[in-house]
Structures are given as structure tokens and as C-alpha cells.
Design a protein around this nucleic acid. Structure first.
Lengths: 243, 243
DNA sequence: CGTAGTATTGAACCTTATCAAACAGAGTGG
DNA sequence: CCACTCTGTTTGATAAGGTTCAATACTACG
């Protein structure tokens, strides 16, 4: 990864509405912008931090996509999350001062680096920023729990549907089309995130295409029937309800 | 649930070494003890808080066992964790001021209730307590991540082995035998925690017993071969390593 | 244009879920 | 004290979902 010349700040950034200045007024946003000056460019495949690294910053995705991988000592791996532009990441394990995960760019990307220490100080002085910080953590935990529930209680087809719906919604929030998606991750990476095999992901994409819900062309996915996809995502529930 | 007459505090509690006074000196422990006066007795099957409740306290298990259930609107459920004596719980979703989970006693139990607001104030004044609080959250997130990895990358037999090893270790920390375990939860609850069917749990117990690793008598489990159980817990790894 | 990486598809196999039945233990009431 | 019920557990048979192995196709990239 390589530092770059300073680019524009939060107040003019097009991710402003969902990133570090979310819900802040102009004065507060300027305070945050002030500590988020450092930009880092990361090339596809490079990491911005690795498991075991010391930890003092959190990051906001300016543009690009990242994956966060979790690993155990025994060699098991899993992708805990994907981060899109405007997402904030690097917030895990900041108490132990050591990274417990690795963040890798899926395409050429740029992030804003924020000193955790300075953000925490700012949060103590400014109520709105304190609220923002807790909101960030709250969302993080919520997402992790939803993923856990998803892994635990859904079968493959539903998990894939949930994944696509989530991605679609997040892209929409960022001003992209929610129906024409270009996946930044491989089938294998999707599989590693949803706890299944890449062949299964591929098969499910094909079967959803056969049903007329998707149009699949390698990484270009078109959602033809958003409602139908939502139905697939909850398919397993009827069974429980009958019981 | 019903309040009870005040019993002894942290400084004399036998869970002191791993609970709210963990790593604190006498003066600091006394400060914590001061805000952890309120004890609540909970009968088997009763909840101490439910999903949607307002949130202002966290709890430490004085004695007994609790399960924390997560639910989605659509009716999917999962047990996110089991808490033993000395464990601290109720720390999820405290930012949104609303419970996102339900805590239910698996046996007649008692907890110490601590005002989150007062604990946070104390943490701001006392470095050691600040450190303790972050440690509590850190551990929480770490456990959740490990469970996620476990659900995502292990098969049933390994998950059950991991579950038993974890329980054994935690009981040992609490001064109980790590080989003679009395399960406080049903097969169904174990299944709901490990994302499988209760029949599968039962079958795996039986098969581990057949292999001489366990002795199973309903809820009384004896671990005959701790090392063997650990091997089962990592069985899937060899496969990955060969690749 | 050829090669490497990625994606799709098929077939056999394995794990786990599902359905069904039998069994054990804790109460309960006659 | 014994039958009876209720609940939780075990076990078996069968089916479905998903993995694994293998072959083929597509794309991108040098």
C-alpha cells in the first residue's frame, strides 16, 4: 500500500451521508475531516492491515472494496465481511491493540485513515461524534449477529439470496443501481463468506437464473425479480411456522 | 424474577477472580462492589430481560446458568451464548438502548445487576476499570467471532467437541471439575446453539461414548479422554492442510 | 494465441436433516 | 405403590442438501 497526495475531505466526499460525517452538522463534520486527512491507496490484492499487526487506526473506504478475513491458528479461514465505499472498518480488536483480522483490497481502492486515539478524544468532547462512534460499533455488532444467525439457521440458497439482497441494498445507499451488480469478489470468496463451497454458490446462481430471478454473467449479476429474491431469502421460515 | 435481600459483595464472592473485580486491587474492587449491590434471583425458565426491553444494566452471574437467545422478526432463532457463574452478560446493543436478545435462566440463578451508566462513569475515572470494561467487550466479540468461525467451517462432530472443550475449560476456571460435567441445557438447546438438530447432538454424544472419549448419562457427561476430544475438535484441519 | 485463473456443470458420495418409534425419568393422581 | 402422562433422550431408516472430485468452458491477460 502507498500513501497518496491529499484529496478532498469529508465535507465534499460523496460518501458523506453514510460515512464518518453521517448525521453531523458542518462544524462537527469539519472536526472529523480534520483527523481523517491521511489517505491510503491500496492495490488489488494488497492488505491494509494483517492479523497480528499493531492497531491504532480505523479506516473509511473512499472508493473500492475490501474483504476482512478471520483466521484461526489451525488454518481455518473465513471472510467476516465485505466493505464498500463509505463503510468504516478496522474497528475489531482495538482493545487488545492487535489486529485479529486481515483486510485485503478486492480492487484498487483508497481509504481514509483515522487515528483511533484522536477520534476517541473528539468523541469525548462532542456528543454528536460520541453518538456516531457508538452507532458504528452498534451496527458492526448487529451485522455480525445477523451473519451468525444466517449461517446458523439458513440453507445455502437462502444465504446466497440474503447476501445478494444485502449487497443490492448497500449499493443503492451508495447511489449505484440495486439491480445491476458487478461483483467485486470471486465465487470462492462468496463461498468463504457464506460458509459453503464455491461450486454450490455457482450452482445456486445458475438455479436462480433458471427461475428467472437473476441474470448471471460471471461477475455481472442482474436482479430481475427483487421480490422473488426476497421470497427465496425467507423460504425456510414457512417450514418453521407450520410447526 | 424477584429482587432479594443483599448478599455478600464482590470482595468476598468466589467468582471474584473472573468477574467484575478481575484484575482489580482492593480499592478498585470496592468501587465496583458499590455499584453492583442489587441482586436478582431468577427462577428456571424465567427471563431477566427480553428482546425489545429498554437497556440500562449489565449483569454478572452470581450462580446458575443462562442462555442468550437471538431472534429475527421472521421467526428464526438461535442461542448466541451460555453464561456460567462469573460471566458478565447483557452487554449487547447497549448503544441503541434496546435489547436485541433475550436472557433466560436454565436453572434457579442469581445475578448482580450493574447500572451501565454508573459503570461507564467509574470507568472514566479509574483506568483499571476502563481496562476491565474494554476487556469484557473484547472477550465478547472474540467469542462471537470464534463461534462464527466454528459454525462456518466445522462439521457437527467437531462443533460438539469444541462446545464440550469450551464448557470444560470454563468450568475448570470456576473451580469445578473439568471432566465431570452436568449439562444445564437440553440436547435441543445445545443443537440450537451449534446450528444443528437435537438428534444429531445425541448421536454424536453416543458415538463419542462408543469411541471411549466420553461417558454419557443423559445430562451427566464424563470426559474420559480430554486429548482425544481435542483431536476430534480439529479433525477437519488435516484435510485443509493436505490441500 | 496460448496460458492461467475463474466459472460452470455432472456424478458419486457423505453428512446431516427429517420422520418415526421406542425408551427413560420425573411427577401426578388414584 | 403403581399406572399414567409428560418431557427429554436415544436410535433407526430414509431422504435431501451439500461436498468432493473431475471434466469442460469461459475470460482476461500477457
Amino acid at each position: 500500500m502507498s500513501d497518496s497526495a491529499p484529496t478532498q475531505g469529508c465535507t465534499t466526499c460523496r460518501n458523506g451521508h453514510l460515512c464518518l460525517s453521517r448525521g453531523l452538522n458542518a462544524r462537527e463534520a469539519a472536526l472529523v475531516e480534520d483527523i481523517a486527512q491521511r489517505k491510503i491507496r491500496v492495490k488489488r490484492g494488497e492488505s491494509i492491515f494483517r492479523c497480528g499487526d499493531p492497531l491504532d487506526e480505523i479506516y473509511a473506504v473512499k472508493y473500492g472494496t475490501f474483504k476482512l478475513t478471520l483466521g484461526t491458528a489451525e488454518g481455518r479461514e473465513m471472510i467476516a465481511a465485505f466493505y464498500l465505499s463509505g463503510d468504516i472498518f478496522g474497528t475489531d480488536g482495538f482493545e487488545s491493540d492487535t489486529r485479529t483480522s486481515t483486510a485485503i483490497a478486492l480492487e484498487d481502492s483508497e481509504v481514509c485513515a483515522v487515528s483511533w486515539k484522536r477520534l476517541a478524544e473528539l468523541a469525548q468532547q462532542e456528543g454528536a461524534i460520541q453518538k456516531l462512534v457508538t452507532q458504528i460499533f452498534s451496527t458492526r455488532i448487529g451485522r455480525k449477529q445477523r451473519l451468525m444467525l444466517c449461517l446458523g439457521s439458513m440453507r445455502s440458497e437462502e444465504r446466497v439470496a440474503v447476501f445478494l439482497l444485502d449487497l443490492s441494498e448497500r449499493l443503492k445507499e451508495r447511489g449505484f443501481s440495486d439491480r445491476h451488480i458487478v461483483l467485486r469478489m470471486s465465487r470462492e470468496e462468496i463461498a468463504e463468506h457464506l460458509a459453503m463451497q464455491l461450486e454450490t454458490v455457482s450452482r445456486i446462481f445458475s438455479s436462480l437464473a433458471r427461475e428467472g430471478i437473476l441474470r448471471v454473467n460471471h461477475r455481472k449479476i442482474q436482479i430481475l425479480d427483487l421480490q422473488g429474491l426476497a421470497t427465496v431469502a425467507q423460504a425456510g421460515v414457512q417450514k418453521n411456522r407450520a410447526f
